[in-house]
Design a protein around this nucleic acid. Structure first.
Lengths: 342, 342
DNA sequence: GCGGGGTGTGAGAACGCTCTCACGGCGTGC
DNA sequence: GCACGCCGTGAGAGCGTTCTCACACCCCGC
């Protein structure tokens, strides 16, 4: 099935100028609404623009302004499952929202494997974007280095593992984990196990560290047998919970490093005949949608995602506007949301 | 916390030419590897490129070639939940994969509300991309019109509701639904209910139509009381199943328009004491990951997603290369994957 | 009536690339 | 030995903008 037609070529500034009876410069002034234009000229130009359905050619403009008015959110993550993580959707939403009032475009790039990373690196170095917000979740990722070296304004979403000089915005994962664990201890629990996130992700490590610090600080045991690693999914959380029940039959509290894992744990606990929160208290992390809808509703640690995305865009745009590179680091406070499980 | 540095400005073709002792034209020839260059000149240029870490300025190049070597996948969908649908992730993966061997970049744009749609429209008309693949799932979406009018090569992922002259690639939802329903009838089932997708999505409608056609064709009842609408989620599927059990207590088969909904139905059926597949046979749609991991594994209709994304890129790139607009429509065959539930 | 300070406008030079065209140099066929 | 063609190369003209100047023009104050 085939039909054909021809593609129109868009009008240029010159054509608009001729039609409006003014010079190219004046049209340009109207387009970029400079104040130094007479009302009559402006009127003539605007009507010519409307008649010709003129749209400025972005390439030509970018060539001289050295700006594209586009920033990229790069997701460097081979595991396609994490791409569909609701957390990621919330980040995208937040960034769009904070860019909504500006005329800056947001594009998403994925870098699943080495080939795609290469492509993203090229894309950025070729000047397609004014800046990059990078979500790189794994510690062995090369892309942060590539982009940093490209000399493009860069803000990481999440703390990098080392102390490299790069701007980032992160949630206070350590503090949140401490808060959650302290809350469990405050409830009188003494056998607090944890379902940890993957060890190759900084957020996972920080949450584990927070749990450990509080337990050892309280003189309680925090050994490896109290830790099971999940993969941030519900199924992974369920598996981890089964291991923990087998290893630590007398556990009375669980700190899960993500809400889906907590939900998986809830399911396993129920199947094992443990009542939540009476027998076992549970705290999750992220305050995902599921935390409100599960039964009983999940006590969890919330990150201020809206603030974080706002911060990211601010940091990035400031870097874009200044010609000097500045490094700023922001850690946003987390807080405990008490619901039914602890 | 602040550190500063300066941003380097990239070298130009001229600087490379000077360093290599050749003209700008020759450097350009090497960059675009034209055959008409002597080995010595090529060598000199390549070494100069390496020394200066030269990267072509994309804007300058695009200005003259009128190509950006970038295509956009636009997701026009206000509901953030669908953004994290695994189906979408598979589309992205597939498109990246089929573009991997080319030097064409893929960017994702989201158009959640009217403001974002406006932005996407501008972005495209300004010439940021050579073509667009559009996932527009709701029938009342304006973006298809906006983009079509922009005169940019366009391929829809999924059939549009009306017969407008636009290229698209779709799965044979109708055929798949027919196949699933026929399979259920072939098992001897006669009270086949369906959990339909949302009526404002074409895929949802087509799957419902296929189910209805087969039942009425077999002289069986296919009235409204046998249909419950879900929202493509597991929770929605569970709710729909509860309604159906109440309305049609003697049902012996369920066709669910998506796998998550089928999984929700499975849970409710089990809770109601119905055995699957002995008492009730169940068929899903999409062949999502969950279809393999659920218990019992789900019989479902698979779409050839890899073929579909491949088709989309081919259709799009052909449109980009030809200067004339051609309209092609592709419907890819679906097939039944038999597992444990039917 | 004449110099001075705006104000609106236009000419023209960038921006960094591609691509056409013309021009030497060399090998080939007669 | 001469015309011819091909091959590698460079000069130069765009591509569609922005932006710096310079230039008329008008209004004011003296």
């Amino acid at each position: 099935m085939t039909e054909t037609g021809t593609r129109p070529s868009s009008p240029t500034l010159d054509e608009v100028a001729v039609r409006a009876g003014v010079s190219r410069a004046t049209v340009s002034r109207v387009i970029n609404d400079s104040p130094r234009v007479s009302p009559e000229a402006r009127e003539a130009v605007l009507s010519a623009v409307a008649q010709l359905r003129y749209v400025p050619n972005r390439m030509a403009r970018s060539l001289v302004t050295r700006r594209t008015d586009t920033v990229a959110l790069v997701l460097s993550e081979p595991d396609t499952r994490l791409f569909s993580d609701p957390f990621f959707a919330r980040i995208v939403r937040g960034l769009s929202a904070s860019l909504a009032q500006t005329d800056i475009n947001l594009v998403l790039l994925t870098a699943g494997d080495a080939g795609e990373q290469e492509k993203v690196g090229r894309f950025v170095r070729q000047g397609h974007v004014d800046g990059v917000i990078l979500m790189s979740l794994h510690s062995d990722d090369l892309l942060p280095d590539v982009l940093a070296e490209a000399g493009v304004p860069l803000v990481l979403c999440g703390r990098p593992l080392d102390d490299r000089p790069v701007s980032y915005v992160d949630a206070d994962n350590l503090g949140g984990a401490r808060m959650a664990t302290e809350h469990l201890l405050g409830l009188g629990r003494r056998r607090v196990v944890t379902i940890a996130g993957r060890a190759d992700m900084v957020a996972g490590r920080d949450r584990l560290t927070g749990w450990r610090e509080v337990l050892t600080g309280a003189g309680l045991e925090a050994g490896a047998e109290l830790v099971a690693e999940g993969d941030f999914t519900e199924a992974g959380g369920a598996r981890a919970m089964e291991q923990l029940l087998a290893r630590v039959p007398d556990l009375d509290a669980v700190f899960a490093a993500s809400d889906p894992m907590a939900v998986g744990a809830l399911r396993v606990l129920r199947a094992a005949g443990r009542r939540v929160p009476e027998d076992v208290a549970v705290v999750g992390f992220d305050d995902a949608d599921v935390a409100q809808t599960c039964d009983p509703p999940l006590t969890t640690v919330a990150q201020p995602l809206a603030d974080m995305t706002q911060e990211m865009t601010e940091l990035l745009l400031r870097q874009v506007d200044q010609t000097t590179e500045t490094v700023e680091r922001r850690v946003c406070p987390t807080h405990l949301v008490r619901r039914g499980t602890a």
